[in-house]
Design a protein around this nucleic acid. Structure first.
Lengths: 251, 251
DNA sequence: TGTAATAACCGGTCTAGACCACTTCATTAT
DNA sequence: ATAATGAAGTGGTCTAGACCGGTTATTACA
């Protein structure tokens, strides 16, 4: 059992949160299995109960665990649809719902940014950006067309990866050590244009979901602008809404 | 200044949360105005700092306030687009973005539920449901077609209100004392059908956003099923996504 | 007068307890 | 055998402190 590191810039409750999350996502803790009680976790990890609760509360807010007074805390069943409140990439999302993700790269290049792109990414006009265009497939069927714009100076040499088989988010996290922590996303309906129709094998007129996303790192650095077009007949967004959490550990 | 009630089933941190929320929503605390410091709130309300923080954390999670280390906690600027994470009705949402909401009632009646409706609302098949169909307008222009299904036994005499001018959520909260606290919502793209085209004054083929929502009370009672069709050219959903709160109060 | 050190204050994290209501289960009394 | 009881364990809430690093205004020095 891993010990938590003291005198570390990473707070103890986040270390514990990530420890437990790894146990759950690696399936070492099965759905509906009971976690150690809060007081047991205190002893094992040598922290106070408030610290344990901060970790459990965060896990509960993300739907990974649920708690019952008098009984205990348990691992939740895995969710299927994309949870809007959770920031995941396409690959992770498809994997988690049991589909095999793949990609066909349409373009992967550098170019100087025009005024609009520079404004969107909060960089000086003319500075180089990485453009990555892909068709995203689930179980071999085209599901979305996605174009990502990144400031080149934040991720030099990004394009040496083959993004037909590699997850962009994994590279950004592992190789460049960016922690992607926040995003602003909009969703609207549109009619598929001729490009979408060809790439997604649609029959016009076809409705599509157009998703735009600005993703930020934990340092609040804007790292990507994504525009995705999803097939309207195959994709649905799901969100759990709550005007206030009823206590810390609602759900 | 109101005092918090002790020996009350409502936790102190929720009482404080609601006190501060009322101050903000009544505009007695203006955007970017600084709140009293955590230690000041401790003294004023005679609670410990952890309790104050639970209230502030909840306010922060909803975007009503934001905090800066070394500076203080401040009231956020009001948001414009619909925040997916926040549960609001159409009327409140339009008001908050500066549009005048109105409605045209298409149907308002009772009928026995069929199998599908009963299943959706978790009630016995054949028990009565209230059906309320409306065109929702913003500044006089049709924006959405909405049909709400409610179990009749939860809201008897609901239909004596004129829902052309009355907000359904306000009636449910004020008259029937339901606290609407949680919803499951899905969003997808579709082509407008002939009914939508007529009611929303669209020119075919036109894309629409179809939103479905199940709303629950604080007692976890399912109180409504809503299906809404929004004009794709006039409406956009916006969401702030976070994979984990970076600390409790990540803005 | 300008600047550097300092003290006061801020939110973020953490501790080591406490009491409560609820659940479960073993023990006891009927 | 069954029912009532009570103890043990659980999460939910709360207290009264503590230390840390970031921010800011003041103060003292050059």
């Amino acid at each position: 059992m891993a010990r938590l590191k003291r005198n570390n810039p990473i707070p103890l409750y986040i270390q514990l949160y990530e420890t437990l999350r790894r146990e759950i996502q690696a399936d070492r803790l099965k759905p509906d299995e009971q976690l150690p009680s809060e007081r047991e976790l205190c002893e094992r990890y040598e922290v106070s109960r408030m610290t344990v609760r901060q970790a459990l509360v965060d896990l509960g807010r993300e739907g990974l665990v649920y708690s019952r007074v008098g009984k205990g805390t348990f691992v939740s069943k895995p969710k299927i649809d994309q949870q809007l409140r959770t920031l995941t990439g396409f690959s992770l999302e498809m994997t988690s719902r049991g589909s095999a993700p793949s990609s066909r790269v349409l373009e992967a290049r550098l170019q100087p940014s025009d005024a609009g792109q520079a404004n969107m990414l909060h960089i000086p006009a003319g500075s180089e950006i990485v453009i990555l265009g892909r068709v995203r497939l689930a179980d071999g069927l085209p599901l979305a067309v996605e174009t990502v714009y990144l400031p080149h100076h934040l991720c030099p040499n990004l394009l040496r990866h083959d993004f037909a088989v590699t997850s962009l988010y994994e590279v950004l996290e592992r190789e460049y050590s960016f922690r992607l922590t926040r995003a602003e996303q909009t969703i609207e309906a549109a009619l598929a244009n001729s490009r979408d129709i060809g790439l997604l094998q649609l029959i016009p007129p076809a409705p599509v979901l157009v998703m735009e996303r600005l993703t930020f790192t934990d340092q609040d650095v804007l790292i990507e602008y994504v525009q995705s077009t999803y097939r309207g007949d195959r994709y649905k967004f799901r969100a759990a809404l709550a005007p206030r959490q009823n206590g810390w550990m609602a759900q």
